[in-house]
Design a binder for these strands. Sequence first.
DNA 1: GATGAATGAGCGTTCATTCAT
DNA 2: CATGAATGAACGCTCATTCAT
Lengths: 198, 198, 198, 198
Amino acid sequence: MPRAERERLILDIAGQVFAQDGYHAAAMDEIARQAGISKPMLYAYFVSKEGLYLAYIERTGQELVDRLQGSLAEPDPLVRVQGRVEEFLRFVEEHRDGWRVLFNEASSSRPVAEQVAELRERIAEALSRLIGAGIAGHGTLDDTTVAVVAHAIVGAGESLANWWLEHPDVSRARMTEWYSRVIRGSLAALLDAPPAVA
Amino acid sequence: MPRAERERLILDIAGQVFAQDGYHAAAMDEIARQAGISKPMLYAYFVSKEGLYLAYIERTGQELVDRLQGSLAEPDPLVRVQGRVEEFLRFVEEHRDGWRVLFNEASSSRPVAEQVAELRERIAEALSRLIGAGIAGHGTLDDTTVAVVAHAIVGAGESLANWWLEHPDVSRARMTEWYSRVIRGSLAALLDAPPAVA
Amino acid sequence: MPRAERERLILDIAGQVFAQDGYHAAAMDEIARQAGISKPMLYAYFVSKEGLYLAYIERTGQELVDRLQGSLAEPDPLVRVQGRVEEFLRFVEEHRDGWRVLFNEASSSRPVAEQVAELRERIAEALSRLIGAGIAGHGTLDDTTVAVVAHAIVGAGESLANWWLEHPDVSRARMTEWYSRVIRGSLAALLDAPPAVA
Amino acid sequence: MPRAERERLILDIAGQVFAQDGYHAAAMDEIARQAGISKPMLYAYFVSKEGLYLAYIERTGQELVDRLQGSLAEPDPLVRVQGRVEEFLRFVEEHRDGWRVLFNEASSSRPVAEQVAELRERIAEALSRLIGAGIAGHGTLDDTTVAVVAHAIVGAGESLANWWLEHPDVSRARMTEWYSRVIRGSLAALLDAPPAVA
DNA sequence: GATGAATGAGCGTTCATTCAT
DNA sequence: CATGAATGAACGCTCATTCAT
């Protein structure tokens, strides 16, 4: 089995275990066993438990970012927002483990927390660009305001996704509609009037 | 030193340590040392590490909930929202440790995770009631939609609070304004039109 | 409450707890609580956990020895043996806790083990004297042989008593008969012929 | 070193420590140190302190039972009894630690106490069978009487063995003779006449 | 390249024992 | 005289990590 493939396999398993047990409770023994390799191999591939965790977050986070940055070709901003939102919710649907690991367990160790924080930042930035493009023609927002609303939107999305995980009978379409409206409403409310000065 | 006071002191210290190291990495030895008492005392007061953690979450969460549920007397919903938001941000300002423990570290052990999840739920419900009262006269929202937007607002608030912690030079007034607008905008956008059906 | 009486009370409680939980698992906290006094008092009376245990063994053992050494007036050795045996079994019946503590938990700490061993020795010696008197006229046994058979008889009695505790429906009369026969038979067998030389 | 051999080694060491300190006072650290392995290995082999103790009791008890149940071929019951007694005393001689652990420390934890009690029962039962076979032709004893005398004999043996451990200059031959006589005498005395009825 | 076997270091918890009052 | 409050010292157990093969 080529190295890259085995790496992927291990990360998949690790994600499951991390999602189920949490970072600390997850045991390297268990991951190695489920992956069908020996513990020294695990260490050869990922150096340490933290390394494994970071690699998983990196891979999963990258995929999320990729989805969110997918085609911006769509001209209608409204449709564009809905498209992104749907991609996001698809990700949550398809990567429940990844989602849980990324957004339900920020803490753990310092470097892990930082990497997760950085990922959030990247997502917020990507979102900020979308917002910048989206509001063109409807007004202007200074950079800080854009960053803030981007974080608000990211946070709302996290929370909605978690709510959705516990209400799986709600359709993706409804979630998309709700989340899209929250986004549009938030933006509109901020464009509506200049923010209070400090 | 009377028992109640010492209890408070210990919880304060514990909050610091939990916020800094995370639940698992936090050591009872360290907490006892910083609190200036012996480990057996720690156990006499809080039974177990989990007990200590839960007590901290309980106390801190209760205070947050209290603040959010403070006087609803204000008739103008707009002002009312801003009042709540400001209370919330004050809490974050004054209880940075508590905030971190409550909202950056959901996982840990099962009972702990449950207690934190329950707290989020209580906040979302309190918010739902506020929303229900707030939109009276502007339209109607079915219960699910209210719950969803409540969670979106809670998530946005979490995210904004975390952003703020890393940009402490931004004034509370600006944060209040932004967050209030996000809330109003989200509500308005959902009232605007019926949500998509499943 | 006079000191002596309280001492007795404490020992009674301690015996219950020791019998139920064993030496190590028995907690001074528990004993103090059940005795209705504070822990420092417990220590004032008995110095240490071991001291308390030793005091209990001393008191209980003494009572057992006293019973075994009761009136030797009875001229008929057969009746005398049966009398002693019945006293012994009465003790077991009336002091189940004491019996358990004395004979089911020899080990624990070194000094405790020694005290229990010494008690056994005292009982065996008392028995040896009985034996010496009893066999007068039926032959002679050297001192070592007497000591050995005394220990055999003591051990048989312990074992029978424990068996009895688990078969409480068997009457004391039957037990007395059996044990008496074992004793007489053992003695007879040793008198029967000179023991092998070393 | 093959696993089985190390297992044996560890059990030997554990027996020494348990015999010397008693179950509770014996520390896993100490056992590991004396066995020249690390504590985690100890746990890998025996799961827990209790597991180690039970394994030791199991092994040692099994050997004792095996010895007691050795060849019954000998036709002469008198010789047969002496053979068994000698085996028993050999066991005590060769496994002083094991003897102490098995018969001087019943208590400890519940499962341990049960296992030791069960072992005693097995020995008494084995003995009961021997007795049943031995008295054939000399009379009859009801089952309860046989069980009782078996327990008496076991108890006498325990006590004699303990006495012997403190008088090591006495030869095994003398002990064998004494114990055999006690056994024969006890049986004879019970056969002699029907036991008193309850 | 791969692993079975091994461990260092640390954590939560308990309890006999003792001050300060 | 009596105690509530406090602790030092262990102990059982676990797990990420690494040699020796």
